[in-house]
Amino acid sequence: MKAREVIVEGKNLSVGYEGTQKKIVHERLNFRLYGGELTCLLGANGAGKSTLLRTLAAAQPFLSGGLDLMGRPVGSFSVKERSRLIGIVLTDKTQAGGLTVRELVALGRYPHTGFFGRLDAHDREMVDYALRAVGMTHKADSYVARLSDGERQKTMIAKVLVQECPLILLDEPTAFLDVVSRIEIMSLLRRLAVEERKAVLLSTHDIEQALVLSDRLWLMTDKYGLECGCTEDLILSGRIDTLFESQPHVRFDLMHGGFSPVAEGKRRICLIASDEVLRHWAQNALSRHGYFCINSSQTDSSGCPVLKVLSSCRLILFAGGNEIVCSSFDALFDALNDCSVTF
């Protein structure tokens, strides 16, 4: 096992804006990005994700502290050198509709080509390779204007691949995409990070994919700044709950890995299910309807109605001495509404 290579390291880094509207967005951030890992930057809108990404891309100066790229201060690289080390994918609208996919990807070779940007055989090989890597070979000669949003994003990722940078930064690469494309893009990025030993950092609101695919999470909040750690460590230590701490009606669902609205159940019901899946969905349905589920083992379970879920079409409700057999959740809620009068 090779030692993990540190690609980027921030030491007490302060990011923000200089000049007349001087504003410190975050102070004293400490972080490391490793080669071969996919890192997701999570945070609410306005938490400063884009500011941090722009700072890492050296598109905006940092206010204080240190930022090292490949072990050297980022300021010590020339613009040209940086363009071979940092590759970016943005959500900016481009004017590239009139280029073919191949031509657009070839733009990524610019840091490596000469004055007129002519491609040699090696450059062309790289372009072909990147097109294969993102699965866009069949569209190589299509106009960018004719692509779907997901395909455009893959093209931009191919562009960043041919740039041959050890660090790839992506600003919300899965925004505007449908769920299939989101999964596709995230899996692609994870695969590229591992196979090409690149440090990939992306900001996203797609927590579901991030928790499954990312090796490391960066949680960005106003209160705690940046919290970095292995995905599972952050989840199981409960630190992921700090992400939306200011929003009391949103909480992290530990069992199912996602943020969900907090259901406030006032009426209690005792839930017995024959397996975990049935338990999850029965609980989901009951909390939505204002029930608070308790286990049969709990001492105060006496007196409240009991629901036995044997299968999705066999639900038995014991309430007020009656036993009602329902064949669906729809029927169950009809029955519950009827007997809630009698409770």
Partner: peptide
């Protein structure tokens, strides 16, 4: 590609 991408391409 816009000024930000251009800058990133050196």
């Amino acid at each position: 590609l816009g000024p930000r991408y251009a800058e990133n391409l050196g």
